[in-house]
Simulated assay, not measured.
Amino acid sequence: MNSVTVRAPATTANLGPGFDSIGMALDMWNELTITRGEFSVSTEGQGADLVPQDTRNLIVTGVNAVFNHIGEPIPGLQYHCTNAIPFARGMGSSSAAIVSGLVAGSAISGADLSKEELTVLAADIEGHPDNVAPAIYGGCTVGVRNGTDKWIVDQVSVPEGLHAVLFVPEMLTNTHESRAVLPDMISRTDAVFNIGRAALLVNALSTGRFELLKYATDDRLHQPHRTQAFKAMPHLIEAAIKGGAHGAFLSGAGPSVLALSTGREVTISYEMAESARTHGVDGKPMIMPVAHEGASVVSSS
């Protein structure tokens, strides 16, 4: 195989209470083409002027991880990315890069790795499975670490028709900095609060009882602490619920806020944008379905 093109979806992580473990794929895609030849990296679209154009790029990390995994030398490759996913906005741009690199590396090397193998490699690179697992499997996933070197990932059945309504601020979020504000210790009360809501979230999604999402997407582990740096967040969540969303939460480390809906998407989008304007937050709303398929090979030659 001389060349391969793959695509990987945007994702939203945590979904409120499922910190570092629950994620969902969104119908917005980055595309990667790798071709045998002298090493180069080029990017167009979202984040083109921000992502590294060398071996530090996470797509290169993903491809290299496959060749290291199978014990083969890394060949010279040319990388070209076409990015639609907003960069550093809490929509899984880094996970899409890692996963597209892994899928492309698996194809061009002939390794033909399973989704389970791809997930282990991706989660080891990312450090947690909440974004990479749905990027690989599609839909909604729950991922947990089993011991020090294994991951367990399971899919949550999500009914068709569920949409994501996002408000995507212009400001960027550094995930490492966003995680640094989180406390190392939490109270038993807050732990019980999140355990119950994470369980309710999975049940509400799998049974289609979307009226429960208003309560199931609440959180005490990370959102209250991240509000310190993004004070408009609770107001955007409140506006989404007012507009008719079933539930709303900070998408990943933010700053994007995401609402889940099965109708009234335009109204929800308007309410979120208006709340953002009122609180002096520049950005744009987006509406997209949940992606029920994960990353895949588009073409090869």
Rank of each mutant, 00 (worst) to 15 (best):
residue 43 T to N: 09
residue 44 E to R: 15
residue 44 E to F: 00
residue 47 G to W: 10
residue 48 A to T: 01
residue 51 V to M: 15
residue 52 P to M: 06
residue 53 Q to G: 04
residue 53 Q to N: 07
residue 54 D to T: 13
residue 54 D to K: 05
residue 54 D to R: 08
residue 54 D to M: 08
residue 56 R to M: 09
residue 57 N to D: 04
residue 58 L to F: 15
residue 61 T to Q: 12
residue 61 T to I: 07
residue 61 T to Y: 03
residue 61 T to H: 13
residue 62 G to L: 05
residue 62 G to H: 04
residue 63 V to K: 04
residue 63 V to Y: 02
residue 64 N to Q: 14
residue 64 N to I: 00
residue 65 A to I: 04
residue 65 A to Y: 02
residue 68 N to V: 05
residue 73 P to W: 02
residue 73 P to M: 04
residue 75 P to W: 07
residue 75 P to N: 09
residue 76 G to Y: 05
residue 77 L to V: 13
residue 79 Y to Q: 06
residue 79 Y to R: 03
residue 80 H to M: 01
residue 80 H to F: 12
residue 83 N to C: 12
residue 83 N to M: 10
residue 83 N to S: 11
residue 83 N to H: 09
residue 84 A to P: 00
residue 85 I to L: 00
residue 87 F to C: 12
residue 89 R to S: 03
residue 89 R to N: 00
residue 89 R to G: 00
residue 89 R to T: 00
residue 89 R to L: 01
residue 90 G to P: 11
residue 91 M to Y: 00
residue 92 G to L: 01
residue 92 G to F: 00
residue 92 G to E: 02
residue 94 S to F: 02
residue 94 S to V: 00
residue 94 S to Q: 06
residue 94 S to I: 01
residue 96 A to F: 03
residue 96 A to K: 02
residue 98 I to R: 03
residue 99 V to D: 10
residue 100 S to E: 05
residue 100 S to L: 10
residue 101 G to C: 09
residue 102 L to V: 12
residue 102 L to D: 07
residue 102 L to C: 08
residue 103 V to A: 09
residue 104 A to R: 09
residue 104 A to C: 10
residue 106 S to C: 10
residue 106 S to E: 05
residue 107 A to P: 02
residue 108 I to H: 10
residue 110 G to T: 07
residue 110 G to K: 07
residue 110 G to R: 09
residue 111 A to W: 04
residue 111 A to E: 08
residue 111 A to C: 10
residue 112 D to R: 15
residue 114 S to T: 15
residue 116 E to A: 15
residue 117 E to P: 09
residue 118 L to V: 08
residue 118 L to M: 07
residue 118 L to T: 05
residue 119 T to G: 06
residue 119 T to N: 15
residue 121 L to Q: 03
residue 123 A to S: 15
residue 125 I to M: 12
residue 128 H to F: 02
residue 128 H to G: 05
residue 129 P to E: 06
residue 129 P to K: 11
residue 129 P to L: 09
residue 130 D to M: 03
residue 130 D to Y: 08
residue 130 D to K: 10
residue 130 D to V: 05
residue 131 N to E: 04
residue 131 N to D: 04
residue 132 V to P: 03
residue 133 A to N: 01
residue 133 A to W: 02
residue 134 P to W: 11
residue 134 P to Q: 07
residue 135 A to C: 13
residue 135 A to V: 10
residue 136 I to W: 09
residue 136 I to V: 12
residue 136 I to Q: 04
residue 139 G to V: 12
residue 140 C to S: 12
residue 142 V to E: 02
residue 142 V to C: 15
residue 142 V to L: 15
residue 144 V to Y: 04
residue 144 V to A: 13
residue 148 T to Q: 13
residue 148 T to P: 02
residue 148 T to D: 14
residue 148 T to G: 08
residue 150 K to V: 01
residue 152 I to A: 12
residue 154 D to E: 14
residue 154 D to N: 12
residue 155 Q to E: 14
residue 156 V to C: 07
residue 158 V to I: 15
residue 158 V to D: 06
residue 158 V to F: 04
residue 159 P to F: 14
residue 160 E to C: 06
residue 160 E to H: 13
residue 160 E to T: 08
residue 161 G to Y: 09
residue 161 G to Q: 12
residue 161 G to M: 13
residue 162 L to T: 03
residue 164 A to T: 02
residue 164 A to V: 12
residue 165 V to E: 07
residue 166 L to D: 02
residue 166 L to N: 11
residue 167 F to Y: 14
residue 167 F to I: 02
residue 168 V to H: 05
residue 169 P to Y: 11
residue 170 E to S: 15
residue 170 E to I: 01
residue 171 M to F: 05
residue 172 L to K: 14
